[in-house]
């Protein structure tokens, strides 16, 4: 899908611009984020340890080695998913919000407990979708849950601000009719488009090496994430990488710009 890839790049991108940022892995039992962030060997304590009072936040937070203002709060690999309680998550998020400008929550797949916990306290949500009917349907469901089950919804506050991020986008396959187009997905989900990330081998390579792809500054995927971060912060930027173009055209353009 691309949620963890996106969480890693968005949080890295925010931190690179000087914002104090923490990214939390809510995928209890799977623990992918620390692999992509290349800090898996430095995990001592995790999110659940903090919730259960077995460790302090300071003990559990891992400082990123590449970007100054970035921290990672890893998930537990061993605990039950139910260890994430609403109260526990709230306590941790409150504490983090005193120290950080942005808290990025990497949600597990589906609409089960972990996903509900990840979205419950959200002010903004980036809904990561692939250009396929089933993925768009799942995103639609999540949007319904944001509207009805988030804390903002339950408290009757302003709704969670929604962003659409379309990833693993392959314009060639869209042209052949094998994938939904950006316009199709926008039309169905009817929320503002934050960015389109092309399908790219570089993303795979980067995650295998433990590098958030936004740090691959020459790559189209990296630049697409950079654009998305800028838009998240309110900047207006043209969408790119949406149509199939000759490779040479892009590389020339990037060198020139």
């Amino acid at each position: 899908m691309g949620k963890t890839t996106t969480s890693a790049s968005i949080s890295t991108g925010l931190a690179k611009l000087g914002h104090k940022t923490v990214v939390i892995d809510f995928d209890v039992g799977l623990r992918n984020l620390d692999l992509i962030m290349n800090c898996e060997r430095r995990v001592v304590y995790d999110f659940v340890n903090v919730i259960q009072g077995e460790a302090s936040l300071n003990q559990a937070l891992i400082k990123d080695k590449r970007v100054e203002t970035l921290y990672i709060l890893p998930a537990s690999q061993t605990r039950e998913k139910e260890a994430l309680t609403k109260e526990g998550v709230e306590k941790v998020i409150n504490e983090l919000s005193e120290r950080f400008d942005y808290i990025v929550c990497d949600s597990p797949a589906g609409i089960e407990h972990g996903a509900l916990m990840a979205l419950y306290y959200a002010d903004e949500a980036i809904v990561v979708t692939n250009p396929e009917v089933s993925s768009v349907r799942d995103s639609d469901r999540i949007l319904g849950i944001l509207q009805s089950k988030s804390r903002r919804a339950e408290m009757g506050q302003d709704p969670v601000k929604e962003h659409l991020l379309l990833t693993r986008y392959n314009p060639d396959r869209v042209e052949k009719g094998e994938m939904l187009s950006v316009a199709d997905v926008e039309e169905i989900l009817a929320i503002p488009l934050l960015g389109v990330i092309p399908e790219s081998q570089i993303v795979l390579n980067a995650s295998n090496q433990g590098v958030p792809v936004i740090l691959e500054e020459e790559s189209d995927a990296g630049q697409a994430y950079e654009d998305a971060v800028a838009r998240l912060l309110g900047e207006e930027r043209e969408h790119r990488f949406m149509s199939s173009q000759k490779k040479g055209f892009f590389s020339r353009m990037f060198k020139g710009g």
Binding site: R137, D140, L143, G144, I145, Q147, A190
Partner: peptide
Amino acid sequence: SQPVRSGQ
């Protein structure tokens, strides 16, 4: 006035 989403 909001879209009725899948599952709702």
